[in-house]
Design a protein around this nucleic acid. Structure first.
Lengths: 204, 204
DNA sequence: GTCTATATTGTGATAGAC
DNA sequence: GTCTATCACAATATAGAC
């Protein structure tokens, strides 16, 4: 009863398209490369998806969901704020590390085609307003230092996303392409980021 | 004696190429668009730069210098560590705000062509090792909390660069495309980022 | 140095046999 | 549904007149 009709040609194409588009972007990707990746004929791409644009859109839809943080952790009531932050950073960094090309892909395409965002945001379930409210309340109750909620949200996202998006640059400049040191760095980073954020907002 | 031969065709082409390449990337840019932007003929692009690749490389060289933070301020001795951080964030965010497309441009191209980095790093004057040493000493002297220097460096860069790179996304998701609120946010951000970092590393 | 015209190649897309 | 062959056009690049 596995719902994912694993070997269907359509699925095969989508998987190949994900790989190529996410790595090279809309303009950088070639239809023939996607066909090769899927081990099928070029014409089949058009049979199933008609145009490059439509195939790209299917990939974008998938990638965007992967990129948007799952904020569920932040709404778990009965949990201290510290732990909610911790859980969020943990979950989001795990997700990003599994899909390291996605952040850059999303940022690049959104820059190219800003209208594409709006269509996706609304169904995404992300609700910045509710998040801001939670942070606002924590400040009111004197649990954390005063900070503009939007700034805090963006700080957290920045600390999680940027190092992944800039991976090759960071690896080269800071680690001189030393893979072992770099992997160790990423392993440590989750804990370090959590500590950094908590230190920044904690009273006392 | 203005050294920049302001109206020379070569310079004109380079300026137009900067604008188009930095906004659209190597694959997204079109030679005819650059020619149009410079108000000259397409053939002239090749006369001066032979290939698209070579013209692109000239632009990349320029952009990379803009993207690399000027760390000079951090080495100004006799200044407390706090103020050095403050000065750096101030200078870097001002630079980024003046060139908002550059971060994404660099990240995208580096991902596409990692070898390009090495050629530029060495002449860039950036010296992560020296930076790490400074941070290490501050920790030794008990001036700031213990943190791995590389993590701190990347945290600072992340907080400065990511919001610029993700501008359209941030503006849409967090600010619902409210331009006034977004501009206000960016104005405030420099101070907020400095406070956030200092709170995170300060003892007590 | 600058232009027009053209060559050349790459790429998305379609026609039509099986 | 899948393939081969081919079209149509866009984009880089060059030739050659002025």
């Amino acid at each position: 009863m596995n719902k994912e009709s694993v070997d269907s040609t359509e699925k095969l194409i989508l998987e190949a398209a994900k790989k190529v588009f996410i790595e090279k972007g809309m303009e950088g990707a070639r239809m023939h490369e996607i066909a090769e990746e899927a081990n099928i004929n070029k014409a089949l791409l058009h049979y199933y998806y008609r145009t490059k644009e439509k195939l790209f859109f299917a990939v974008f839809q998938y990638a965007f969901q992967q990129f948007l943080p799952n904020v569920e952790a932040l709404f778990k009531t009965g949990m201290p704020f510290d732990q909610r932050i911790e859980l969020f950073v943990h979950q989001y960094m795990k997700l990003l590390l599994k899909n390291p090309f996605i952040p850059l892909f999303i940022l690049h395409e959104i820059n190219r085609n800003p209208e594409m965002i709006a269509n996706h945001i609304f169904q995404s379930g992300v609700n910045p307003r509710a998040l801001e409210q939670i942070i606002h309340e924590e400040i009111e109750q004197g649990n954390i230092r005063p900070i503009h909620p939007r700034q805090l949200i963006l700080n957290i996202i920045s600390l999680c996303v940027f190092p992944i998006a800039a991976k090759p640059l960071v690896k080269r400049i800071i680690f001189n392409n030393d893979n072992i040191a770099y992997e160790k760095f990423l392993d440590d980073r989750e804990t370090e980021v959590i500590q950094f954020i908590l230190n920044a907002i904690k009273i006392k």
